[in-house]
Amino acid sequence: MDLRARPFRSVLYIPASKARALEKAKTLPVDAIIFDLEDAVAAEEKPAARKLLAEMLAEGGFGPRFCIVRINGLDTEWGADDVAALRGAGAHAVLLPKVETTAQLDALGDAIPGVELWAMMETPRGVLNADALAAHPRLGGFVMGTNDLIKELRCRPRPDRMPLLTSLGQCLLAARAHGIVAIDGVYNAFRDEEGLRAECAQGRDLGFDGKSLIHPDQVAAANAVFAPTVAEIDLSRRQIAAFDEARRKGLGIAVVDGRIVENLHIVTARETLAKAAAIAELETVT
């Protein structure tokens, strides 16, 4: 499935050390899973976790869900072993934490050929280098590490995320310039659905493809907020029909609901319909 159409509304972190959680992931209505070997796994559990994860990925059963593995940094004592365990295991992508330079991506790419690379954007230097990172030929997506960014920027967490908007925007600009996926950071209060929906709506309106999540209870809200609405689908269809009719009459623009519709609006409308179709396809086989 084309990454421009493939849904990434919900991207759920799952500890790679938890067999029951890994098994449950096969049944969750998520668009993508980040199997976490880094922060969610204690140092003494990392060898067993990577072995378990490699076995379960090789076994399969995750259906259409996009499977991403967040490894430990290659500069840690666990990174090289993570990569070795994942070669040929069946992950769609490998997510590297705290990416700041293209050299880090080159090193990971050399270590694990044939797998898409993703980058955690969670440091000031990484954000400042977002354009160069997004241009890397192996990179498929950014995942915002907003908790680490708050720490590194020494800013205060706020409901409106004002202190993070520059970082979010810079990474999103780079992602869009180079055609890669952009996933918003986590919402920590996993029982606060109202707050989650508000932050999902902000991320959606900024332009992110979806939300990274820390609990299965957050999936439904992210799926709903990041999906095209019935009204958006209807408007897209009417815009395309009106524009096609205008073109048949030799006109370059159409008018729908009192608003001008040009070719750029049709591009967006077709993308909306393609995303809606991809979501329907995914939900049929999930």
Rank of each mutant, 00 (worst) to 15 (best):
I34P: 10
I68N: 06
D82M: 03
G210R: 12
R50M: 02
L206H: 02
D131G: 08
A277C: 02
R158L: 15
D244C: 04
C171M: 06
G90N: 08
T268D: 13
V261I: 08
G185C: 02
S10G: 12
L213C: 03
K275M: 09
T229D: 04
R156T: 14
A107G: 05
I71N: 06
L206R: 03
R65V: 07
E77V: 14
E100I: 07
T229N: 09
R20Y: 07
R6K: 13
P216M: 08
E194H: 14
K26G: 03
T286G: 02
A242W: 00
H136Y: 05
K275V: 06
V225L: 05
V127I: 15
P124S: 10
P159E: 11
M121F: 04
L173D: 01
E199Q: 15
K26P: 04
V83Q: 08
L164M: 12
D131E: 15
N72W: 03
L251Y: 02
I150T: 14
V30S: 14
K18H: 15
K275W: 01
A222P: 13
V230M: 06
A80W: 03
I266N: 00
M1A: 14
P216L: 07
I71G: 12
A277D: 15
D148Q: 09
I14C: 10
A276V: 01
H136F: 10
A91C: 15
D131K: 11
A135K: 12
A177I: 06
A25W: 05
H92V: 02
A280S: 12
K151E: 13
F226D: 01
H136T: 05
A80M: 12
L28G: 02
A32W: 11
C200K: 10
H178V: 08
M1T: 13
A89P: 08
G207E: 06
P7G: 09
A254I: 06
Q104A: 09
L108W: 02
L273R: 04
V285R: 09
I34Y: 09
R161M: 14
D131V: 12
T146D: 15
E262Y: 05
G63A: 09
I279E: 01
V99Q: 05
I34W: 05
R161Y: 01
E38Y: 08
I68E: 06
W118F: 04
S236G: 00
A111Q: 01
L264H: 12
L153H: 02
A221D: 11
V230S: 10
K275S: 04
A222L: 11
A111V: 04
R237K: 07
G250F: 06
K275P: 00
T102Q: 08
N147Q: 07
K151P: 02
L149E: 13
R259E: 03
R270W: 00
E281W: 09
A220N: 11
L133M: 10
R20T: 15
L52C: 06
L57S: 06
R247I: 02
V69F: 14
A85G: 13
V261A: 00
A130P: 09
H136C: 06
A278Y: 00
T229Y: 00
E23I: 13
A84G: 05
F142T: 06
A134L: 03
Q239G: 00
V230W: 01
I33D: 09
D31N: 14
H92C: 07
D82Q: 02
A278D: 12
L133K: 05
R270F: 00
R259T: 01
A58D: 13
I183Y: 01
F66H: 15
A54M: 10
